[in-house]
């Protein structure tokens, strides 16, 4: 008994990881700086909520990608395909269930939406598993081929959507009870944006807890730091990776459903278009870092919304400018992952 006590105290005395605060401060500073520029408080609230909602959706789509990259050094350029497939799969539920969607009952609306999300995540998860098996597995460790192959995979997936669902856009109206806006003071806040923020927060918190409080999370984090060591300790990092890949794909599918409902129209190219933002986000956040990805997503979305209001012409390149600014400050992204 006496011998365990010093060990326990030694455990407790392990230095805690220092929290790297400056990146955390960027967001509030940005929001506060934008306030006097915009001038009107209600407009600012509307823009900020819109930015947060957009940021949460981008985070959901980007988080899987950055984890996969951190864990296995695979950058999946075809990630956008899961976004499109997720959104289009949701129509399989949402369009036949118009009755539930149009019903004036929050419960029925939620049920229809929940069913659609579940199906979309299931399909994209399975697709992710197949994609990993067939497309990605043969090219581990070869960056050049990975980029080419996953890009090709994305084109094929996008075209298959055209084959299955036809070449036209599909309108996807929001359920009745999520339409419209609520007034807080003078600021109008769209209900759906609040839902997006809530879902994004739930995903972030769940991910944070899994990564920091469970054994699987511990293994994933260890794998990001040093995969070989985790393997040497007897864990099968391959299985871990397949799991993360499937989860990341399912999250992309969830993001696709949310994004599709946000835009209210679906095109097969939507995944490819959003990938540009997703790449900027994970570069800003630091490749492989989930926390950085979260902050990066919110930053990109807020800047896009503020710039869209203040100077629409600059808004087109605001993301690139933001990326340049961040990389000049921290060349490896906000939270660089140790080994790279």
């Amino acid at each position: 008994m006496t011998t365990t006590t010093p060990a326990a105290t030694a455990d407790a005395e392990l230095p805690r990881l220092r929290l790297d605060t400056p990146p955390l401060l960027v967001l509030p500073i940005l929001a506060l700086l934008a306030l006097p520029l915009i001038g009107s408080f209600p407009t600012w609230v509307t823009l900020t909520v819109a930015g947060l909602a957009m940021g949460m959706m981008i985070f959901i789509m980007a988080s899987g990608l950055t984890l996969v990259f951190g864990l296995m050094d695979v950058l999946n350029f075809g990630h956008g395909a899961f976004v499109s497939v997720g959104a289009f799969t949701a129509t399989l539920v949402l369009l036949p269930m118009q009755g539930w969607m149009q019903a004036d009952s929050v419960l029925l609306n939620l049920a229809a939406l929940g069913l659609a999300v579940a199906l979309a995540m299931l399909v994209t998860g399975l697709l992710g598993w197949a994609f990993e098996r067939v497309v990605v597995m043969p090219v581990y460790g070869q960056h050049l081929k990975q980029i080419l192959i996953t890009m090709g995979g994305m084109i094929v997936a996008e075209q298959m959507i055209h084959v299955v669902w036809g070449p036209d856009q599909i309108p996807l109206p929001l359920p009745t009870s999520f339409r419209g806006a609520i007034l807080v003071g003078d600021a109008a806040i769209e209900k759906y944006r609040l839902i997006a923020v809530a879902v994004g927060l739930i995903v972030f918190v769940a991910m944070f807890l899994i990564l920091n409080r469970t054994k699987i999370g511990l293994l994933i984090r260890a794998g990001v730091e040093n995969g070989e060591m985790v393997e040497a300790l007897g864990y099968r990092i391959r299985r871990l990776f397949v799991g993360v890949f499937v989860a990341g794909s399912a999250l992309a599918g969830l993001g696709g459903v949310l994004w599709g409902l946000y835009k209210e129209t679906l095109t097969a190219a939507m995944g490819g278009d959003i990938m540009v933002l997703v790449f900027i986000v994970i570069i800003i956040g630091g490749l492989g870092s989930v926390g950085g990805c979260f902050i990066g997503a919110l930053l990109v979305a807020l800047v896009a919304n503020y710039a869209g209001f203040l100077a629409p012409k600059i808004a087109l390149v605001s993301n690139i400018l933001l990326m340049v600014a961040i990389l000049l400050w921290r060349p490896q992204g906000l939270y660089p992952v140790a080994k790279r």
Partner: peptide, 28 residues
């Protein structure tokens, strides 16, 4: 100069972003 110091993968992502911004700019 900005992105070739790092990895091939980095350059691929940045060029994708810049090129799509340029295409949007040209049509806007």
């Amino acid at each position: 100069l900005f992105s070739l110091r790092v990895k091939a993968i980095f350059y691929a992502m940045i060029t994708l972003a810049v090129a799509s911004a340029f295409a949007v700019l040209a049509s806007q």
